[in-house]
Amino acid sequence: MNYLNLFFVFFRIGAFTFGGGYAMLPLIEREIVFVYQWLTQEEFIDIFAISQMSPGPIAINAATFVGYRFSGILGALFATFGVVLPSFFLVTNLAKVIQRNKNSLYLKGIFAGIRPAVIGLISAACLSMFRISVVDYKGVIIAILIFSIFVRTKIHPIILILSSGLLGIVIYL
């Protein structure tokens, strides 16, 4: 019963938050901390710290962490599948509709307008991430260095991410 409860709480969170993982955090806080009291406020704040030092989408990280704290590995699985299942149904069905109407002039027009907007969207996300992630001049140097290497060479982004982490250890430790 508890597992089902956990599943449905995260299913609801996954189904009703627009705007990505960060937008889910207030909803998770309300359900998990205030309504069900599965975590304390301090533990909830730890989720931020943990998400920042772990790979993976924040929504998944938060669901896994809450589920694990609540009832171990099985809890982590139930919460995680709960949060991604609404995405799974919605995205696969919409993808089907889009593929069937690939040649529709309406759809072509819509996407012709949306593509430039996505560039604006990514740039805006970049700016707000810059404000949080680049805290000193060393950060600015890392950003400029990685940007120029990535634009001029074919080095894989994963190699650059790992090297910047090592660089972080060298200059910040």
């Binding site: 949080i132 680049v134 950060g139 950003a143 990685i146 910047s164 982490g165 090592l166 972080g168």
Partner: peptide
């Protein structure tokens, strides 16, 4: 490590 990674992610 993550202090170094974050600015790199923004640049990428």
């Amino acid at each position: 490590f993550f202090q170094g990674v974050r600015p790199a992610i923004v640049a990428l």
